[in-house]
Amino acid sequence: MSLFTSVDHGSTVTKHPGLAAKEARAGRILIAPYVIFFLIFSAYPLIFSLVLVFHHWSIVGPLEWAGLDNFAELISDDVFWKSITNTLLFIIIHVPLQVVVALFLAAVLNENIPARGFFRASFFLPVVVSGVAVTVLWKQLFSTDAGLFNQVLAWFNIARVPWLSSPDWAMPSIAVMATWKNVGLYVILFLAGLQNVPRSLYEAAEMDGAGWWDKFRYITVPAINPVVVIVLILSTLGGFSLFIEPYVLTGGGPMNSTLSGVLYIYRQAFGFFRMGYAATVGLALAVVVVGVVLIQRRIVERED
């Protein structure tokens, strides 16, 4: 977390007033590109989003004052709320799955087994491959009639599963795919956490007669708790950014069961050309994201 600490670091030569002024001038020049970037690409969109949410706008033609119409629509918009519950469903499946699988793989990789480097790289491969490529690949794996999954299930006489064509299965299927895609990153993060635990601690615990579970519960878990927090937050943010997977696999269907928040923004803006309402959905989604992350933090910190 040292990234966020503010250190008063400066030149020791700055005691001389002329040199201090020179240093300040250099500082202002070097930071100028960021300030310009911030004003154009962060500040302006931020302010304009607060304008947009009070207007109707199809992007051609003038802005039309809408008062609180967009917010009134949002509250009674079942599809919007569906997109929020979809995202929460995705997170409820994806995040714990991610943590458990990543932790398991990292724990085994942390032991002295052969070919560790190869395994680590294998798990990491889907992380670097484009999400679009992975999704197109999984679209074939998920196919109800000819997909690999259903063919393998058929070997065991298990009936075909409508992975993407049933509203009950589609979102869990996407959550599993997303876990496969991202788990390698979290394995690496957990491994880094585990490697910080001194071996001697485990040896001492073994001498005291601690079993596998005791060692895991009282040594490993406290040591990796900070990593768990990072994994929770990163994969939650990932859940709220969900877009390309449903876009390619299902288009948000069936029956809006995989419609994510971002996909809904996209649909409102570029399907229906309702910029004001799309911006309102974006604002609402941002509020939910910040809310969920704050709640998570509070829960995790209380457990410490």
Binding site: F4, Y34, F38, I40, F41, S42, Y44, P45, L46, F48, S49, L52, I59, L237, F240, S241, G261, V262, I265, A269, M275, A278, A279, G282, L283, L285, A286, V289, V290
Partner: peptide, 21 residues
């Protein structure tokens, strides 16, 4: 602090205004 703020600002908020820009 501005930089920290832009890091925690969800992109969903500025996506549409950035397109307008």
């Amino acid at each position: 602090n501005l930089i920290l703020f832009t890091m925690v600002m969800p992109f969903q908020l500025t996506l549409i205004p950035l397109y307008v820009l």
